[in-house]
Design a protein around this nucleic acid. Structure first.
Lengths: 142, 142
DNA sequence: AAATTACAGACTCACTTTATCTATAATAGA
DNA sequence: TCTATTATAGATAAAGTGAGTCTGTAATTT
């Protein structure tokens, strides 16, 4: 069991977007360049974040991505679930049981602990980490 | 991200083994039958549990599987890690960072919470759930 | 109208999961 | 020691998932 690479990219990308001055946008090209990724691939990941309601995109000349909600509200869990989905980690296959399975109940509780913690932690806690990148971008503007 | 089906089988199988009277063994055929699985496939799963030091196997006429440690010591985490391995859920690919990545740090903490909970919960809590199956097996002995 | 930007779909490649089948090794009991 | 019984290892295969590329399309600003 592992989180996908896409989740890794999504978290790093969101860290950069959260670090933007309010209202500012950041372009796909720049985000892809920072992480050494193909833009079209990163686009697929970001589209999931758009559909999850975390960011919004505007095409066109000075388009890009920007936050929808206040940056303080963006949790790790929000980003992770946007990419990985919300299906439960464990599902007891045994036909009859399914609901009555005690094992499943424990696993569900464990997952709840995990999610609760990831909901508490917000990306904005580490926004300063991304400032270097953003300053470098300002110095060589488009 | 999901736990594998094999983990599901392993947990259910261990629940049965934990429910055995001390010293008693349970055969591969019976365990496979209960869960409607091919014996050879289940064997591969159980071999992992053997190598992890949770159970031991004896071939031969009245062979089967039995616990190594006291039943009270077998946690959910023990079984899960025997099947899934102990690699971390999340690994920041970004070359330089790897250790300094703040995202990875949060993810590691989250995982620690998950594992801590699964370590606390023991399979023996639900041993009684398996009694029905075991009694039925006694009534039609080999 | 044109340049710029994000989006969608089809496709590929490699790896993992979930098995199945066959053959082999080890043990207990006659 | 022979034999039945049981677990194990190896080869194989089908299906699914993850990761990524390429090409083309839609939308917006100037």
């Amino acid at each position: 069991m592992k989180y996908s690479q896409a989740t890794n990219y999504a978290l790093h990308t969101m860290l950069h977007i959260v670090s933007l001055p309010s209202g500012t946008t950041l372009g796909l090209q720049q985000l892809a360049e920072i992480q050494a990724l193909s833009p079209t691939y990163l686009s697929k990941i970001l589209t999931k974040l758009v559909k999850a309601g975390l960011i919004e995109s505007t095409p066109g000349v000075h388009g890009g991505y920007k936050l929808v909600k206040p940056k303080e509200e963006v949790s790790f869990l929000d980003v992770i679930q946007a990419i990985e989905g919300t299906a439960s980690l464990f599902h007891c296959g045994a036909g009859l049981q399914h609901d009555s399975c005690v094992i499943q109940h424990v696993m569900k509780d464990a997952e709840a602990r995990l999610e609760s913690y990831l909901q508490e932690r917000k990306l904005v806690e580490f926004a300063h980490q991304s400032e270097d990148w953003l300053k470098r971008l300002e110095q060589q503007p488009v």
